[in-house]
Design a protein around this nucleic acid. Structure first.
Lengths: 215, 215
DNA sequence: GTGTTCAGTTGAACGTGTTCAACTAGTCGC
DNA sequence: GCGACTAGTTGAACACGTTCAACTGAACAC
């Protein structure tokens, strides 16, 4: 029964999270709705955060699927970045009402749901792989100097957009879409300009900084 | 006794936060240490978050004081930005052990301690005013087109640096200092370059985006 | 069969942030 | 003086996430 129970708790939790949000979904309610004891849920999932992490994995998968359809259409860096980020806004839209509390949980450094945590490794890899495809399939091609670092930077940019999205109370998250519509061409343009002598130094500084800071 | 009690609860809470961090400081402990009933603390402060917000106000004041000393020395945008941001890292250093949980609390959109909340108005104003001085006192002067928007952008950059700082486990937060050492001249350089024809368009786009997104 | 082991399961118990009905004491109107 | 009125204060009570000692039953060894 173990595997069945775990799957049942998982799906029950995700359903309740979607229906009620994070705070209003109690561990007791999850257990009761799944027909098991409270402690049993903790046997299979170390904490409520670990259950939320399962939700993130689901959403990341949806985003990756939608993004792959966008990327299949080709295009330049700007178009691809715009498409992938807007696909993200769409994928997350369903959860916007509770987005705030979910991101709150995610940002806690110790949390299993943190985008940097070991537990989130699977969804992080999924997401970063998506941005790698985005960069590598762009035409015209991204300058070689940037090609290695850019995917991770774009992944971080996506996290930033998501953070903005959390605070975005406009209907349909219009402001976040406006942000994406502005940021995508801006990044596209800066990448293009990075080869010019004037910006050569600055762009090298950015890359050096990224490397220094990561170490 | 009301004002006395409020001040007593406030100072007790801040002391315990500094000594034990956020999670380990219980409302019961604060009340007990202050010699009042638990409910009494809630009469004066709506929630634990509101007490944390008082701590932020304290720290912001320390940062502003340290920053003012830096700004009094003049200098160009890069030097001033570097000085102010490093002063921030120093002012926050004492709390780094618990920084994670404090920022966690602060980032929750509904929270009183959020940098965007009404309750944080005082420390937000204090901080933004600091960046306004930073920009306006810089020599050579910042291009007029940027002068209005830059302070708020720098304030946001500071929030970003603080977010990085939370995750920075290096001794003495060396990585955050490296980040500041890199970001300050980068911003300084970009601001200078923004007047060149090649970047004119991009920098106008940035400003237009900021305005569009803020609305 | 019998004994042993252990993954799976149970629900009471703990400490938490927060709420609230009740109590206290000082102030005002008369 | 006296009767409201109220700001201040109390501590028990609530629901929560989480823990844990105890129980169950299937698998296995002999």
């Amino acid at each position: 029964m173990s595997d069945d129970t775990k799957a049942l708790v998982r799906s029950t939790a995700l359903r309740l999270f979607r229906e009620r949000g994070y705070a209003a979904t109690t561990m007791r309610a999850i257990a009761q709705e799944a027909g098991v004891a409270t402690g049993n849920a903790y046997y299979h999932f170390a904490s409520k955060d670990h259950l939320v992490q399962e939700l993130y994995l689901d959403v990341t998968r949806e985003h990756a699927t939608a993004a792959r359809a966008v990327l299949a259409q080709g295009g330049d860096l700007t178009a691809r970045l715009r498409g992938v980020m807007l696909a993200g806004v769409d994928a997350f839209a369903e959860y916007h009402a509770f987005g705030a509390e979910f991101v709150t949980v995610a940002i806690r450094p110790g949390s299993a749901a943190s985008p940097f945590s070991a537990e989130s490794g699977e969804s992080r890899e999924l997401s970063q792989e998506m941005f790698r495809e985005l960069v590598e399939g762009a035409s015209p091609a991204v300058p070689t100097g940037l090609r290695d670092e850019l995917p991770e930077l774009l992944w971080l940019a996506q996290l930033g957009v998501t953070l903005f999205w959390v605070y975005d109370g406009s209907p349909g998250q219009r402001r976040t879409r406006t942000l994406v519509e502005g940021v995508a061409p801006l990044i596209g343009r800066l990448v293009k300009l990075s080869r010019l002598p004037v910006l050569r130094g600055a762009s090298e500084d950015v890359l050096a900084l990224v490397r220094a800071v990561r170490a």
